[in-house]
Simulated assay, not measured.
Amino acid sequence: MEGGSGLNILYAETLDAMGIDHSRLRPSKAPFHGVVPGKRAMPLGQIDLPVTFGTPSNYRKEVLTFEVVGFRGTYHAILGRPCYAKFMAIPNYTYLKLKLPGPNGVITIGTSFQKVYECDVECCEYAAAITITSDLAVQLAETTEGRPNSKQPATSFEPTEGIKEVPLDPSSSDGGVVWISAALSPK
């Protein structure tokens, strides 16, 4: 459940596990952001798939459009707002339940807090690994000549040019000061 997502996302790995050929994908319209922290993602394509919630005695089936992405994820798919709208579903994140109308009453889908915790830990570890890998690549590409002042140690708190010293409390003589940009207006 991802109430913040404006897309339904399916990972190519999941599509392959379902035995669906990539030739069924339609071209996607545009890239999107937010699935991989700080990265833009271009989908491999779109696909319409039937999705069913419920039990044999009370179920709903709708066809959803998924953006298929070629990178690894920690889930099989992400069901976003388009899914909730189509199913008229209401997520409750406190109780980890998704409720939607069915032909024979309300359909309730839920999970355990333990499963959610395990998924969140895996997702955070994966996002951190991607971020660390990206940050390391950037750091390796930079050289010390690229620093504004390579003679100044990285842990120095010396003010740079364009900074002025302002007393924290003008009526006090304790000497507490803060440095601010000299370009700021007096307000």
Rank of each mutant, 00 (worst) to 15 (best):
M88K: 15
D48P: 12
G80E: 07
F87I: 09
A77M: 14
L79Q: 02
T52A: 10
F66A: 13
I20G: 10
S57T: 06
N92G: 02
Y93D: 07
S57D: 11
H76F: 14
S23V: 14
P37M: 13
T74C: 15
L10I: 13
K99T: 13
T55Y: 01
N58E: 00
A12W: 07
P37A: 14
M42E: 04
R40Q: 11
A89N: 06
P50D: 15
A85S: 05
E62L: 02
C83Q: 08
T65G: 02
V63A: 06
T65I: 03
A41P: 00
R72F: 03
L64M: 07
R81F: 02
G54L: 06
L100E: 07
L96M: 08
P37I: 04
G45H: 08
R60P: 00
L10K: 09
V35A: 13
A17N: 08
R24L: 15
G34T: 01
P27F: 00
D48Q: 15
K86I: 00
E62S: 05
G70R: 13
S23Q: 11
L100H: 05
T74K: 10
H33C: 03
T94S: 12
L49K: 06
R72S: 13
L79E: 03
T94V: 04
K97N: 07
A77F: 04
T65L: 01
P82Q: 10
